[in-house]
Design a protein around this nucleic acid. Structure first.
Lengths: 203, 203
DNA sequence: CGCGACATTGAAGAACGTCAATCGTCGTGG
DNA sequence: CCACGACGATTGACGTTCTTCAATGTCGCG
């Protein structure tokens, strides 16, 4: 692309942007190394990307108004700065269609990154709680679940394999959930009886 | 989309497609549940997606000729089957540009899914070996590394946070790598002295 | 009835985390 | 130029989480 852009230098250990920042620029890493990450509530950092020269730093900026994670320079860094609206104009034709597709990819990507966060930095209890709540939320969005029990065809082994655990351990955790009256998971039906308590377990 | 399509029924526990299968169809899940997964060499399954009605089953088919993972029905399932070339024709305008973007998103997504596989189903030794080799490969692609030492500005803490480990444990693993003569990681420089041995550790 | 798939439970062990102390390096201010 | 302080690497001792192995129970289905 022969697009007009500025260059900018950022010092080692400085943030390029922070999670939640609003941004209107797209960055490409020209020299140096950087990485992206998010923090869990209990202070663990999960890194998502190690960025090396040539990498797009914030692809998400093409579609999002706020940064979904923080980017920090590992070394002194030089970045190329593009105005994201200028990029839009450059892709002037069929913009709407491209945007729809990009949104699709973006949501898929951030969902997987969420899973990565779970596997890297959350306990088995947290992972399972979040998993169950996540499934319920997606079903609700589509009108496939309301308050009360809903269809849940996953076995312990499936949950284990989605979360990097063993079926045996999934069983133990779910047993405690059941004993504490948080959920009712039987046959192939799940009832989240105390959503707020379960949510508080999921951090 | 008012696109012509067939419908197809698949029985519970059957595979919709297998990793490595060549495909020319795009599927959308009409009813029932399914999931996608891959197996590690030592027989662990890692699930990537839990699919519910309305979900795209194999977005990757829009750009890939072979399935990057397996999809299996959790319940009896009905899917809508689209010819992927027909979809291409439908997106006839600006196809080339859209494809370029899609390829970008796709590679980002599969890289994150690879990380997910590592975190869910590989030991710390395997994760770290794969991480180092992966970085080296990306640098090579861009001519930023050849045989011999190369620049490596990541600290133990960064590696830990990328892999869901603690810096202390990363240190111990890397110490054994060093003692075994596999790598030389000092200052901010990495030399993979025995790539094949390291690769064999990474499964 | 018998079989296969999965849930459940117990006991034992391995992998990895936590806490804490020491050491070396580097940048910074005096 | 030197002293100081911050930061990361390293190592040890110990604890916890999760896995592994194994046995038993339960349910649906041919």
């Amino acid at each position: 692309m022969a697009l007009r852009h500025d260059v900018r230098a950022i010092a080692k250990r400085k943030n390029l942007y922070r999670e939640g920042d609003s941004w209107s620029e797209f960055y490409n890493l020209y020299s140096g190394w950087a990485f992206t990450f998010r923090m869990t509530a209990d202070g663990h950092r999960q890194i998502f990307d190690i960025l090396i020269p040539g990498d797009a730093i914030n692809l998400s900026s093409l579609r999002l108004d706020r940064a979904p994670f923080t980017a920090q320079a590992l070394t002194d860094v030089i970045i190329c700065v593009f105005d994201r609206h200028m990029l839009d104009e450059h892709f002037h034709n069929e913009v709407a269609r491209i945007h729809r597709l990009e949104n699709y990819w973006l949501s898929a990507l951030s969902s997987v990154k969420g899973n990565l966060m779970d596997l890297g930095r959350r306990s088995s209890t947290e992972r399972i709680a979040r998993f169950l709540l996540g499934i319920e939320a997606r079903l609700r969005e589509r009108g496939l679940a309301a308050d009360g029990p809903f269809d849940f065809p996953l076995g312990h082994t499936h949950i284990a394999d989605a979360l990097g655990l063993t079926p045996v351990h999934v069983n133990r955790v779910i047993s405690t959930f059941r004993k504490d009256g948080l959920i009712d998971l039987r046959d192939h039906s799940l009832h989240i009886k105390q959503p707020s308590e379960l949510r508080s377990l999921s951090i």
